[in-house]
Design a protein around this nucleic acid. Structure first.
Lengths: 184, 184
DNA sequence: GCCAGCGGAGAACGCTCGTTCTCCTCTTGC
DNA sequence: GCAAGAGGAGAACGAGCGTTCTCCGCTGGC
């Protein structure tokens, strides 16, 4: 196995385990077992568990940004539709069987108080999502605060869907977003 | 020190430390030091750290429910105003210097995947907040889904304010709530 | 065929944590 | 004044974790 696939397998295994059980409840041994990558290799690629967590979060950040953009490109044309498409994307995500909330909200809650790096990555990600909305809101000529409100709806849908274990908040938030869009 | 005040001091110390650093990063020794209650007493009152965490969350649940109700009673009279008062309460909370997000969202992210009890308490709390909105929405004769949407706004404001470290999401969510109320 | 070096399995190490135990002090009832 | 018991301080214990090390087998160049 070359270094590249080892890194990928570790990132995927860690992401899955962190999502399922949280960060601190997952030992490096569990990541080694799930990834099939030896501890030696693992520490060659990621010098510490903290570094691995940061890499997982940065990768997830890029993944979510790309997914939002490409989902909108595939399902919507106007800025109005592209805003709503974000909530459709959330709905598909929430329905996945292993969905357990947003990785950044969860990581911030668990580690953000103790690791400035994790808090920064979470803030950066949430700012990026807000900015995605902001670009669409600007295209619509609506006031900028609408972008913040759409981001709040999205974050609220993630938190609510995670805790309640149902995908419905996506549709409810989408309906609310439509009301806000129509009022602006 | 009698048992009652020992219990109270432990609960307050644990709540503060859990909020600041997360649950798993706080040792029982830190709680003992912060509370001034000996480990022996501590384990007499709470048989395990898990039990202590559950007690902290249940107490916080009651505290938040009472605060929402009494804040609304003090600052609002109509159901419409009482809905918006929840977001004013959030704004005051977010501005507190040690605010670091919602205890239930954070605890769910950290422990919810591994402890059904914690996940249950978080779900119960969020359901209670939704039901608070639902009662007001029913008084207004608005469709029930509005209560879910208001709860999503509140949860989103908490998550966003925690991660970004600013209280503004409360006002932004309040403005969004007003739009939803007026549209219903 | 042989050896140098790379990689894997997993033991080892040092630390922290949850929980319990020990020992000492102080109070209290007589 | 004294025995008895409760309570506090902190050591002790066992488990688990992040990280490193050891040892062994395999591979590839000559």
């Amino acid at each position: 196995m070359d270094t590249e696939t080892a890194e990928l397998r570790v990132l995927e295994a860690a992401q899955s385990l962190f999502n399922e059980r949280g960060v601190q409840a997952v030992g490096m041994d569990a990541i080694r077992t799930a990834s099939g990558v030896s501890l030696k290799r693992l520490y060659q690629v990621f010098p510490s568990k903290d570094a691995l967590l940061e890499a997982v979060l940065r990768r997830r950040d890029a993944e979510v940004r790309a997914a939002i953009t490409s989902y909108a490109a595939a399902h919507a044309t106007t800025p109005y539709e592209r805003v709503l498409a974000v909530f459709d994307y959330l709905g598909e995500w929430f329905a996945e069987p292993d969905f357990r909330g947003c990785a950044f909200i969860n990581a911030y809650g668990e580690i953000g108080g103790v690791s400035a790096a994790v808090a920064d990555i979470a803030r950066t990600h949430k700012t990026a999502v807000r900015d995605h909305f902001a670009a669409l809101v600007a295209e619509l000529g609506a006031p900028a605060v609408l972008a913040d409100q759409l981001a709040i709806l999205a974050n609220g849908a993630m938190a609510t869907a995670g805790i309640n274990g149902t995908p419905e908040p996506a549709a409810q938030a989408k309906a609310a977003a439509r009301v806000l869009l129509d009022a602006a």
